[in-house]
Each structure stands twice: as C-alpha cells, then as structure tokens.
C-alpha cells in the first residue's frame, strides 16, 4: 500500500486534502513512528482511522478531552451571552455611555457560540441554544440586585469574564494537538481579555461617577476600582464578602491539569513563579520604577482548571440549568 499514492490521488478530487490532515498532525506522527514496523495487513486499518479523523470533524470525531474543553467554553459563553443580553433588555440598567460596549461584548459572545458550535457539531452538549432561564444571575441570592444596581451588574460581569479568561487559558494546552481548534480558542481567549479590560475600566469610572478612562485604579480599593489587569488577587474581586457566593475563587488557586505528562497547575492570580522564573526578583525594573509583588503578578494571568471553573459557574445556574446539566462535573 502506497500512502503517498493514495493521498496524491485524493488530491486530484480534493485539493484540500493536505489541509484536512493538519488538524490531525498527531495522527500522522503516530503513523510515522510506527512506519518501520507496520505490516501490510495493519496498514489499511490505520489509514482508515486516519481518513475518518481527517474528514470527520464535527461529526463525532473530536477526542473526548477536546470536546470537554469546547463544551465547557460553550456553556460559559451562554452564561455570558444571556447576562449581557438580559442587561441590554433591562431599561436603565446599563448607562447610555456603555450600551455600545455591552452590545459589542454580547455580540462577540454570540460569535464565539457560533464558532464553538461549528467546531463541535453533533458533539455539542446541547443542540439548541441555552436560554436565559437556565441561569440564576443572583448567584443563589448573593446578588439580588444584579439587574437593578449598575455597579453590581458590572461587578458580576467582571467576575464572569475573568472566570472565562482563566477557563480558556486552562483549556488551551489540552487542545495542543488540534492546531486549528487551538488557534480558534486562543483567538477567543484574547477577545475575552479585551472584554475584561474594558469592564474593569468601566468599573473604575462608575465608582467615581465618571465615564471613560480618566479614573486611575486604586490599589487600596481593587474591589471597586480595579486595574484593567488583575493585580495580586484583586483583594478577592468585585464582591469578596457576598454570601453565600463570593468572588474570591475567581482569583484564587485551582487544581492541576495534566497534559501528556506535563502537570499544569492553576496558581492563584498573585502567583510570581513561572517555570522557575520569579517575576519579581528575576527581573530588573526600568529606571525610576520598582517591581513590587503586585506589579510582578499583573504581568501574568493564570489559568484555571475545568473542575474549579465549573464549581464557580454552578453557582449561577437555575434549576432549569441544572436539569440541562450545565456545568456538571
């Protein structure tokens, strides 16, 4: 059996055959490694599996770990989409100066839902959109005024989007062998970080009855006047003392994800160590500046493992959402 001859023949009817194999580089590596030992009898089965994977995307062929990452992402996108959409549909909640931004963010989430659904195909956790009724944005009564108090609304928004950024960051390494899906996920991840940056800017301004970027962050009141990046653990986030659900876990440590043989921990956001590099003591500040632990922590965001993300997110599902299995372990 001449694999190259087969692929060459396929190319005549499908010029994109080489592109199709790109997402399946792992499959090819696998084949190459075994190349010397393959018997003629074993080869057809392997090749069949390979082609099934190359052409089967979106029809039940993605590996289970990839599906799990994308389905958690999809559920988080629904959590956010419905939150922003509900806010936009609540007269007076979102200041006129911010309606355009929240609309942009809402629309980005819809785009992400579209991308994730197309990647997952029939492996999506649900074939229909998850409605707003699947969520409880009071967080089990912790934020009863989420849709009447503008500051509270933006505080909850910050908590959701920061959870989302950490979730994508934690999931991305699991996608390492599916290059095009990885790239799509990275291209969502950075957009979520842009959202977080803006939501935080809005919160600083709201806390000073201002609009725009003129208000400096207050390192002594990061709960209400955060930087556009996460400083330390942001003193627990927007609502560190809410009850029964507070925002501290959004910035705290999570669990370990092992990819291949590489353990990837989820340190708290005030972490300073990255692959044996201490971001405070290992760096030299520009003239006139000092690298404080806060500054060093700001330079790196941290991932969060799926189990911890789901534990946070389950606080915001309604009974209907629970019935759908949203954020189930």
């Amino acid at each position: 059996m001449d694999l190259f001859k087969i692929i060459s023949d396929i190319e005549k009817v499908d010029p994109e055959v080489y592109e199709r194999f790109d997402t399946r580089r792992r499959a090819f590596k696998h084949l190459t490694g075994l190349g010397q030992k393959l018997t003629a009898a074993a080869l057809p089965g392997l090749v069949g599996a390979l082609f099934n994977k190359a052409y089967g995307q979106g029809t039940g062929s993605l590996p289970a770990d990839v599906v799990a990452v994308l389905n958690l992402a999809l559920q988080l996108e629904y959590l956010e989409y419905n939150f922003y959409n509900a806010g936009l549909n609540t007269p007076g909640l979102i200041p006129a100066s911010e309606v355009a931004a929240i609309t942009t963010i809402r629309n980005d989430e819809a785009g992400h839902i579209k991308v994730l659904r197309q990647a997952l195909g029939n492996q999506a956790f649900s074939q229909s959109d998850v409605p707003v009724t699947a969520f409880d944005y009071t967080g089990q009564g912790s934020f009863p005024d989420w849709n009447t108090n503008t500051a509270k609304y933006f505080g909850v928004a910050q908590s959701f989007v920061d959870t989302g950024v950490r979730a994508y960051k934690g999931g991305a390494p699991i996608l390492i062998n599916n290059k095009d899906i990885l790239q799509a996920a990275l291209n969502i991840h950075s957009v979520e970080a842009r959202h977080s940056s803006h939501i935080r800017t809005v919160r600083r301004a709201l806390a000073s009855n201002a609009v725009g970027t003129i208000v400096a962050a207050d390192p002594n009141d990061l709960n209400n006047k955060p930087k556009s990046w996460i400083s330390g653990q942001d003193n627990g986030g927007a609502a560190p003392n809410a009850t029964p659900v507070n925002t501290r876990p959004v910035y705290a440590a999570g669990g370990v994800v092992t990819v291949g043989s590489t353990p990837l921990p989820s340190p708290a956001e005030d972490n300073l160590m990255h692959a044996q590099f201490n971001a405070q003591t290992g760096s030299t500040a520009p003239t006139g500046l000092t690298i404080t632990p806060a500054a060093a922590s700001e330079a790196f965001d941290e991932p969060l493992d799926a189990a911890t993300v789901k534990t946070i997110a389950r606080n915001f599902r309604s009974a209907a959402g629970a019935a759908l299995g949203l954020f189930n372990p």
């Binding site: 960051k169 390494p173 991840h189 970080a193 940056s197 990046w229 990255h274 965001d301 941290e302 991932p303």
Partner: peptide
C-alpha cells in the same frame, strides 16, 4: 504544553493592555 500555558498567561495581559 508548559510553554503553551505560559504563552497564554502573557497574551491575555497583552490583550488587557491593548483594550485599555
């Protein structure tokens, strides 16, 4: 995966910068 994870820790900070 470790390098990919660390790149992810940096890029979101760059995106926060870009947004602001």
């Amino acid at each position: 995966p470790l390098f990919l994870s660390i790149a992810g820790k940096i890029v979101s900070v760059e995106a926060r910068h870009a947004g602001l």
